[in-house]
């Protein structure tokens, strides 16, 4: 079953070792991921992969996922994405 956001969903915080994830609906079936991170130069790709994996598992479509990362570990990023998606449905 596909998941499609109907409203904005936000999860997480902007403290060290956490991240804030914002999920917003788009007009089509696309999935856009944007990453801002204090460690973007070194870990931007890895973080994007973690976000992408989670979105795929959740079968998310028609969404923009924006991650503002303050040095979170992958499991935190995944948990925050999951919650933000749930809140956007």
């Amino acid at each position: 079953m596909m998941n499609r956001p109907t409203k904005t969903g936000i999860a997480g915080t902007l403290e060290s070792n956490d991240c804030q994830v914002t999920v917003e609906p788009t007009n089509d079936d696309s999935l856009v991921i944007q990453i801002e991170s204090v460690v973007k130069a070194r870990f931007g790709k890895q973080i994007e992969m973690a976000v992408m994996d989670t979105c795929k598992q959740l079968e998310l479509v028609g969404a923009t996922v924006f991650v503002d990362d303050k040095g979170a570990l992958d499991f935190t990023i995944k948990a925050r994405v999951e919650t933000a998606v749930k809140r956007s449905l």
């Binding site: 902007l14 956490d18 948990a79 919650t83």
Partner: peptide, 13 residues
């Protein structure tokens, strides 16, 4: 979501 992550969110508000 882990309890700790939940607490952090709660604390932010």
């Amino acid at each position: 979501m882990s309890k700790l992550l939940e607490e952090r969110e709660f604390r932010a508000s």
